Lab assay of single mutants.
Amino acid sequence: KKRTSIEVSVKGVLETHFLKCPKPAAQEISSLADSLQLEKEVVRVWFCNRRQKEKR
């Protein structure tokens, strides 16, 4: 599977969401993915990776 490069503008939206809610529910991930025209899996993994980054 190819890596998905995420646009800077999209990263901004994801970051804003992350600050409000670092662990979104599946439904939130779905609606976020739809509005950003990304796959749900890509958004889910982004949040996973972002949470791990917080720990470091």
Rank of each mutant, 00 (worst) to 15 (best):
K1I: 07
K1M: 12
K1T: 10
K1L: 15
K2M: 10
K2V: 11
K2C: 02
K2F: 05
K2Y: 10
K2S: 10
K2E: 05
K2T: 09
R3K: 12
R3C: 14
R3M: 12
R3Q: 08
R3I: 13
R3S: 14
T4C: 09
T4F: 09
T4G: 10
T4D: 15
S5N: 14
S5A: 13
S5M: 15
S5I: 11
S5Q: 15
S5H: 10
S5D: 15
I6G: 10
I6K: 11
E7A: 11
E7N: 15
E7P: 15
E7R: 11
E7Y: 08
E7W: 12
E7H: 13
E7I: 08
E7M: 10
E7Q: 12
V8K: 15
V8L: 15
V8M: 15
V8P: 15
V8R: 15
S9A: 12
S9C: 12
S9H: 15
V10H: 11
V10M: 13
V10Y: 06
V10A: 15
K11R: 11
K11P: 04
K11C: 09
K11S: 06
K11E: 15
G12N: 10
G12Q: 13
G12K: 12
G12D: 15
G12W: 08
V13G: 04
V13T: 06
V13F: 08
V13S: 12
L14R: 02
L14V: 02
L14P: 01
L14D: 02
L14M: 04
L14H: 00
E15N: 01
E15C: 00
E15V: 03
E15Y: 00
E15L: 04
E15Q: 02
T16I: 07
T16M: 09
T16N: 09
T16P: 01
H17T: 06
H17M: 12
H17P: 00
H17I: 05
H17R: 01
H17G: 04
F18W: 06
F18N: 01
F18L: 00
F18Q: 00
F18A: 01
F18R: 02
F18E: 01
L19Q: 12
L19D: 07
L19Y: 05
L19T: 12
K20F: 08
K20Y: 02
K20N: 06
K20E: 08
K20M: 02
K20W: 01
K20G: 03
C21G: 03
C21W: 01
C21P: 06
C21I: 05
C21Y: 01
C21Q: 15
P22C: 06
P22G: 01
P22S: 07
P22W: 10
P22E: 03
P22T: 02
P22K: 08
P22A: 08
P22L: 02
K23F: 14
K23C: 14
K23G: 04
K23V: 09
K23S: 14
K23T: 14
K23Q: 13
K23Y: 15
P24W: 06
P24C: 00
P24F: 09
P24A: 06
A25F: 02
A25H: 11
A25R: 11
A25E: 13
A25T: 15
A25V: 06
A26C: 10
A26D: 15
A26H: 09
A26L: 11
A26W: 12
A26F: 06
A26T: 12
A26K: 07
A26I: 10
Q27F: 06
Q27K: 10
Q27M: 08
Q27Y: 05
Q27I: 06
Q27R: 12
Q27D: 14
E28G: 01
E28M: 08
E28D: 08
E28H: 04
I29Q: 05
I29R: 03
I29C: 08
I29T: 07
I29V: 03
S30A: 14
S30F: 08
S30Q: 10
S30P: 04
S30L: 05
S30W: 06
S31R: 15
S31I: 12
S31C: 07
S31G: 07
S31H: 14
S31E: 11
S31L: 11
S31Q: 12
S31D: 15
S31P: 01
L32Q: 00
L32W: 04
L32R: 01
L32C: 04
L32D: 02
L32G: 02
L32K: 00
A33M: 01
A33L: 05
A33Y: 00
A33K: 00
A33G: 01
A33F: 02
D34T: 06
D34M: 06
D34H: 13
D34A: 09
D34C: 05
D34P: 01
S35C: 07
S35K: 14
S35P: 02
S35M: 13
S35W: 03
L36E: 02
L36A: 05
L36S: 03
L36T: 02
L36V: 11
L36R: 05
Q37K: 08
Q37N: 13
Q37L: 04
Q37M: 09
Q37E: 14
L38R: 01
L38M: 10
L38Y: 06
L38T: 04
L38W: 01
L38H: 02
L38D: 00
E39Q: 05
E39M: 06
E39T: 07
E39D: 13
E39A: 06
E39S: 11
E39W: 03
E39V: 05
K40C: 10
K40V: 13
K40A: 12
K40G: 06
E41L: 00
E41P: 02
E41Q: 02
E41F: 01
E41T: 06
V42F: 08
V42E: 14
V42Q: 09
V42S: 07
V42I: 06
V42N: 02
V42R: 04
V43K: 00
V43R: 03
V43P: 02
V43H: 00
V43M: 00
V43G: 04
R44I: 00
R44M: 05
R44G: 06
R44H: 06
R44A: 10
R44C: 02
V45M: 12
V45L: 13
V45R: 11
V45P: 07
V45F: 05
V45C: 09
V45E: 14
W46L: 02
W46K: 04
W46N: 02
W46M: 00
W46Y: 03
W46P: 00
W46A: 04
F47G: 03
F47I: 00
F47A: 04
F47N: 13
F47M: 01
F47D: 05
C48A: 12
C48Q: 14
C48P: 02
C48N: 11
C48H: 13
C48G: 05
N49I: 04
N49V: 05
N49W: 01
R50Q: 01
R50I: 00
R50T: 03
R50S: 02
R50M: 03
R50D: 03
R50V: 04
R51S: 05
R51L: 08
R51G: 02
R51E: 09
R51C: 06
R51H: 02
R51W: 09
R51D: 01
R51M: 09
R51V: 07
Q52E: 13
Q52W: 04
Q52C: 08
Q52F: 00
Q52M: 13
K53H: 09
K53P: 01
K53C: 07
K53N: 05
K53I: 06
K53M: 12
K53V: 09
K53S: 08
K53W: 01
K53F: 12
K53Q: 09
E54W: 01
E54P: 01
E54R: 00
E54I: 04
E54L: 02
E54D: 09
E54G: 02
E54M: 02
K55D: 09
K55N: 10
K55L: 13
K55H: 00
K55F: 10
K55A: 11
K55E: 09
K55M: 09
K55T: 07
R56D: 05
R56N: 15
R56C: 08
R56I: 12
R56T: 12
